[in-house]
Computed example of a mutant assay.
Amino acid sequence: MSAVGSGKSGLSARFRTLGRRGATSLEFALVGTILLGLLLGTMELGRYLITVQALRTASAEAVRMATLRGSQNLNSGTAACTSLSGNLPGVAARVPFLDASGLTATVSDCATQAGITSVTVTVQYPFTLQVTLFGAPSRVMTETAQAFFN
């Protein structure tokens, strides 16, 4: 009686072992894809936030350059908005994270009223996702800054 009982329990133990083979690999495949997606998503989010901050720094630098040029114009006796239109070169030097060839900084508005000059600068940069999971592979990011001086 004991030999028959031990044979059945040994057989069921063997089936339990064979039935669990590969379960760990399957569980890792399921959990690993989720973890990989979270890792890649976190990296993309980090790149996006760094690019946003660099774009804000670039817009602040562009406004500073426009203000300095306007102040130089006022000190030389010309109107503050003289030669303050179009592209502002040299802005990319302050943001080494961004590709200088894709960064554009333009003075979109310069006006003087009652001795106070307002300058509006728009900075644009194309942001490309490295992992295009949800369709939108690229978009142009825009940051606008405004300064007042007299």
Rank of each mutant, 00 (worst) to 15 (best):
S12L: 12
G5T: 13
R139F: 13
T117I: 06
V123S: 15
T57M: 00
G115M: 02
L36I: 14
T104Q: 09
T132Y: 08
Q130K: 07
A23L: 15
V63F: 00
A136G: 07
F28L: 01
R14Y: 12
F15G: 08
L38G: 15
A111D: 06
A80N: 08
G5M: 06
T106F: 10
L38P: 09
G37W: 13
G41Y: 10
Q72Y: 12
T82S: 09
L26R: 00
A147R: 00
V121E: 03
R16D: 03
M65Q: 14
T128L: 03
A147Q: 00
S85W: 14
F97S: 13
G46E: 10
R56D: 02
V4I: 13
T144V: 15
T117M: 04
Q53D: 14
G46R: 02
T42G: 08
S76E: 14
R21S: 07
Q130M: 06
G5S: 14
R64L: 12
Y125K: 04
L49E: 14
G5I: 15
L40M: 07
V95C: 06
G41T: 11
V31T: 11
L36N: 06
F134V: 09
T122I: 15
F97R: 12
L18T: 15
A54G: 08
F149K: 03
L74Q: 12
V95H: 01
A136M: 06
I116E: 05
T112S: 13
Q53Y: 03
V52F: 01
G5A: 15
V63R: 03
R56C: 02
A145G: 13
T57W: 03
G86V: 10
G90E: 00
R94L: 02
R139C: 06
T17C: 04
R69G: 10
Q130W: 11
S108V: 07
L133E: 06
G7L: 08
C81R: 04
R20H: 00
T57L: 03
T112I: 11
G22Q: 11
S85F: 15
L39M: 08
L45S: 01
N73Q: 13
R94D: 09
L103Q: 04
L38F: 14
T142L: 05
R64N: 13
L38R: 10
A79P: 10
L74W: 05
I50K: 06
A114C: 01
A62K: 01
R16Q: 09
S59A: 12
N75G: 07
I34S: 01
Q53F: 09
G37Q: 10
A92G: 09
S118P: 04
L40T: 14
A111C: 04
S138L: 03
A54N: 05
T112Y: 04
G115D: 02
A92Y: 09
P96L: 08
P137V: 07
I34K: 00
